[in-house]
Design a protein around this nucleic acid. Structure first.
Length: 600
RNA sequence: CGGGGCGUGGCGCAGCUUGGUAGCGCGGGUGCUUUGGGAGCACUAGGUCGCAGGUUCGAAUCCUGUCGCCCCGACCA
């Protein structure tokens, strides 16, 4: 490609002020993307080449696994989503699905994901176990009306994703395919030149049993991952389990009230009464709203030094209830409290808070769903709220009985905790960017959408499903977050828009011009990804742009042209040397092979 | 949704406090010089100052409303 005739660069001299993180700044400054609206970007020609490289790597690996590529519609009729019972949750309130009506008044959603559509198709074309397993995938734009789009392509409202869906006749087959997919994913990310970590993950609103996320570790990441040094354990903090530090036993052994005026926080109580946070049980109230419009008040207990993991809590409540849990809010809004609760001593609530505080005329369920984390239920002597303003209470031999409490893990694991593996390893913490996620969905969608097949025993059974996502545009940005320097991007060669850029320093010199053309044609003839910066610009401008856009190799054609010599420069190592032009092609092929193999 | 910030030419910004009809740097165009790390000089094009009201002889500037964007949080997978 020639910059002047077919490949305009569009680099910027100043960084647009909207960009906060380095990868976003470099994408904008390098002319890769342009913002059209909040979370909506145009991919410029140079960006599209990166996207296509990533797509090709994905396609090769998935085809090896026997997956078939297809393309599904993006406009989905609401009835499909109503069948899976996700329409309300995805459109109402803070749902993320853009939705609209056609001229007939029929409702549609703009696809954030494709489980419904693919399951509906699979149910039509799969009749027999003999057709299984099958895996379909597509690479396509997804739409999500994010509450807060940010960081460029990291969390945008329109983004390109590879999503794949597999169908199986048994759970065992699903599990074995899932494991193959896990390896395929590792290959894909390695082939993209990325360093990733696989972690146990929450399966979220997609649903399903087992799930694993692939993370690019980077400071700018929005997820927190907990892991051990040895690699024996790695999980997203949303899912991570651990053993908290030991509690300090409470000395006071008698039931009594503790006057604690204006001591609403754990730290206040500890400071004023010479207590340790591990001697306190913290009670947090929530209200859970379900798809069927019912609302259940939740009372949670956890040890004072620990924090509630609302995702675990969400999943726990969701599993205990037949309708979908749409929203879980802390009870802290004064208007809500006044409307539904009476005599609630905020800041002084204990695990034995009476059901009678819930107003008779409230539309909430009239009993608390009481949930205790293990860290609380393991305590029998502790301090907690006395359910009386300005008083706490010593609880002595209190029992979190299973009749009254749902006892479970609803705690946030944190760095420094011991793992549950019993090997005395402690957890470390890093930020990560989620670029891939694989799920064992099970039969959730095949049941709801009635997708069944005849098994070899002649019985009609529901399909077993897996689903597998990769954020294509997110990979591109994550790769930059992992590979840049003060001059710009340093692409891994596997996903770089070009493998090499030719920079003639003075095209007015006929000797340089001729040599440039000679070399460019030679590279083209050998099917190499080569960009020729044939602009009538000063050399410095072209050097700056070449560094900024981050092509891994640069060929500089200058004064030494007279001797048929050029310079060959490696963007990442900054190594630069002179070479006779007749040896250039061979040298380049060798060096690029080394670079490809180094990471893949 | 809560908190903070910002909307002035393609990009980055100043001007606003104290109203007088818009400016700087980069970028664009033309010419000459220059030519290995974002060149110099000269000329030049380009903006109804987010939008709508209001105050005033006069509004980028003051007032009211509104829209949008960015950041932090809530939330979300």
């Amino acid at each position: 490609m020639r910059v002047t005739t077919s490949f305009p660069l569009g680099t910027l001299r100043d960084t647009p002020s909207e960009a906060e993180i380095i990868s976003h700044q470099l994408l904008l400054k390098g002319g890769y993307i342009r913002r059209i609206n909040s979370g909506i970007y145009a991919y410029m020609p140079i960006m599209l080449r990166v996207i296509e490289k990533i797509s090709n790597i994905i396609r090769k690996e998935l085809n090896k696994l026997g997956c078939s590529k297809l393309l599904l519609p993006q406009l989905h009729p609401s009835d499909l989503w109503k069948k899976s019972e996700r329409w309300e949750g995805y459109t109402a309130g803070e749902g993320i699905m853009f939705n609209l009506k056609d001229r007939q008044g029929k409702e549609f959603g703009l696809a954030p994901t494709h489980e419904e559509v693919i399951t509906s198709i699979a149910s039509e074309i799969i009749n027999s176990y003999k057709q299984l397993p099958l895996c379909f995938y597509q690479i396509q734009t997804k739409f999500r009306d994010e509450i807060r789009p940010r960081f460029g392509l990291m969390r945008s409202r329109e983004f390109i994703m590879k999503d794949g869906y597999s169908f199986h006749s048994s759970k065992e087959d699903l599990v074995s395919f899932y494991k193959k997919m896990e390896i395929a994913y590792e290959n894909i990310f390695t082939n993209c030149g990325l360093e990733t970590v696989g972690v146990d993950a929450d399966s979220g609103s997609i649903g399903g049993a087992s799930s694993k996320e692939f993370m690019v570790t980077a400071e700018a990441g929005e997820d927190t991952i907990l892991f051990t040094k040895s690699g024996s354990y790695a999980a997203n903090i949303e899912k991570a389990v651990s053993i908290p530090n030991e509690a300090i036993p409470l000395k006071t052994k008698t039931d009594k009230l503790l006057e604690t005026p204006n001591q609403k926080s754990i730290s206040d109580i500890c400071k004023n009464n010479n207590l340790d946070p591990t001697q306190i049980v913290k009670v947090v109230l929530y209200i859970a709203r379900f798809e069927d419009k019912s609302e259940i008040p939740i009372l949670t207990c956890i040890r004072g030094d620990q924090n509630i993991n609302e995702i675990k809590l969400h999943n726990l409540i969701s599993n205990k209830h037949s309708s979908n849990l749409i929203k879980l809010n802390k009870i802290e809004n004064i208007k809500h409290i006044e409307k539904n609760l009476s005599n609630l001593p905020i800041g002084y609530i204990g695990p034995d808070l009476k059901d009678t505080v819930i107003n008779k005329n409230s539309y909430w369920t009239k009993t608390w769903l009481r949930i205790a984390d293990y860290s609380a239920s393991n305590l029998s002597d502790f301090i907690s709220g006395a359910n009386k303003l300005n008083f706490h209470k010593v609880f002595n031999e209190f029992s979190f009985s299973e009749e009254q409490f749902l006892i479970s893990d609803i705690r946030n694991a944190k760095k420094g905790d011991f793992t549950i593996k019993g090997n005395k390893e402690t957890l470390r913490e890093k930020k990560g960017i989620e670029i891939g996620h694989i799920f064992q969905l099970g039969q959730k969608y095949s049941e709801k959408l009635n997708a069944s097949f005849s098994d070899n025993d002649g019985k009609l059974k529901n399909l077993w499903m897996g689903c597998y996502g990769i954020g294509v545009t997110r990979i591109a940005q994550a790769a930059i977050e992992q590979n840049y320097d003060e001059n710009g991007i340093i692409w891994p060669i596997q996903i770089s828009p070009f493998e090499v850029v030719i920079i003639p320093t003075n095209l007015k010199d006929p000797i340089q011009k001729n040599l440039t053309e000679e070399i460019y044609k030679d590279f083209k003839k050998n099917n190499l990804d080569v960009l020729l910066d044939d602009r009538d610009e000063r050399a410095g401008v072209k050097f700056k742009d070449a560094d900024l856009i981050g092509i891994p190799f640069q060929i500089i054609i200058g004064r030494d042209s007279i001797n048929k010599e050029v310079e060959f420069l490696c963007r990442s190592s900054k190594n630069k040397f002179k070479i006779a032009s007749k040896n250039l092609l061979e040298k380049f092929i060798y060096e690029s092979e080394v670079m490809y193999n180094k990471k893949s």
